[in-house]
Nucleic acid binder design. Structure first.
Lengths: 206, 206
DNA sequence: TCAATTTCTGACCGCATGGCCAAAATCTAG
DNA sequence: CTAGATTTTGGCCATGCGGTCAGAAATTGA
């Protein structure tokens, strides 16, 4: 099971090429997390990286490609971590709980990255003004969650509820957990995650 | 119980003044709902209203005041409708269910307005670049929901869960229901709302 | 009717942005 | 060492934005 956000990898032309791209992406993450997407201009990102603005244009086709690279790196890393934690589990309830807890753990260790990811998801638009990452981007997540719910229903562990509604709601619950923690860093993320796991276990169970 | 978003009303100087403001707000709603906040420039809103751009500057102190007026009108209308439906109910479970259903019903009848509201909530920034409507804007909603949950716990109808987590999650669930419907207009909003009511009733109940 | 007031127009301003490019600097390979 | 390729610089450009303004138009009231 692997993320489908960016199916094909790219081949770096040189070591410097790859290093520069990684550095620019890191600066983009830092700047977006600090000042928000709207204020994250190429000039600001370049300044943070200690390079000239033109360097970004040299290594990336445009701002959109840079943002997509940020999404790809951060998203795949998070997905890989969560999926690795879920690997091997058989019980739908455990899968559900692990999904919630592992996600929270990853958020806590990669706060800036996830904040940047959310900013880009919410704000990046195509040239025509349409959201670059809309609801259809979440389709992959929805289907993965639905497969867990379906397993639970098949084994009799879960009651008979609408798969899509539950998936959309759980996904939104995770986002809101992160959003609340982002706004109130003192908030106990782990406790929130445990409450969420209980909440959805009760909502799903027979 | 009344919304606290904009405590003080304004006094319109004349009939034309009020009519123009209402017309401009309506055009702002339509444009934002159609092309998104980022593309909703004053020029575009003016064009939609069939007036010159300067008229907006004449009737509003600036773009921020216009957006805040949109939020005030749309939000208070929605809150008043939902709260009116809940008025008089005593049982926490019924209050919860009514909150979900009434919200969905209002969304369905005011799709463009709610879309514009969401766009503004997510995108409007102050001059310093900070979100104008952040998580603290939801504090009012959270506390209202918590009072319902607390009632249920006091009467023994609900189990002992974390009030804040449940409120944040329910609020996010409502937002995601609207977001999904906004992306897929064929989606059955009422059925979704019923599923949500069931979901949270199970999650809350003893 | 006609002057005072309110409202509207359309051009204009300063600003920030993303992108572009010629020239300079740096690195690499023969 | 040197010639060619790669990488970086810093200034420049067109664009679109929110906001302003003088003057025209419309409305109002006596």
């Amino acid at each position: 099971m692997r993320s489908e956000i960016e199916p094909g990898g790219r081949k770096p032309r040189s070591f410097i090429e790859e290093a520069r791209r990684a550095q620019i992406v890191a600066s983009a993450v830092a700047v977006i997390a600090e000042v928000g997407f709207a204020q994250a201009s190429l000039a600001r990102i370049a300044k943070h990286a200690g390079i000239s603005k033109g360097v970004i244009s040299y290594h990336f086709a445009g701002k959109e490609e840079l943002m997509e690279e940020v999404v790809t790196r951060v998203y795949t890393e998070a997905a890989d971590h969560v999926l690795a934690e879920m690997e091997g589990l058989q019980d739908a309830g455990e899968l559900l709980r692990t999904y919630v807890i592992a996600n929270a753990a990853h958020m806590r260790r990669h706060r800036a990255q996830i904040m940047a990811l959310g900013e880009i998801f919410n704000n990046l638009r195509t040239a025509e003004g349409k959201p670059r990452y809309g609801v259809q981007t979440s389709e992959e997540i929805y289907q993965a969650l639905e497969s867990v719910f379906r397993l639970g229903q098949r084994t009799g562990r879960f009651r008979d509820f609408d798969l899509r509604v539950m998936a959309v709601t759980l996904s939104a619950a995770m986002d809101s957990m992160f959003g609340y923690w982002a706004a109130y860093p003192e908030h106990d993320l782990e406790a929130h995650a445990r409450e969420l796991a209980d909440l959805f276990e009760r909502a799903c169970s027979t």
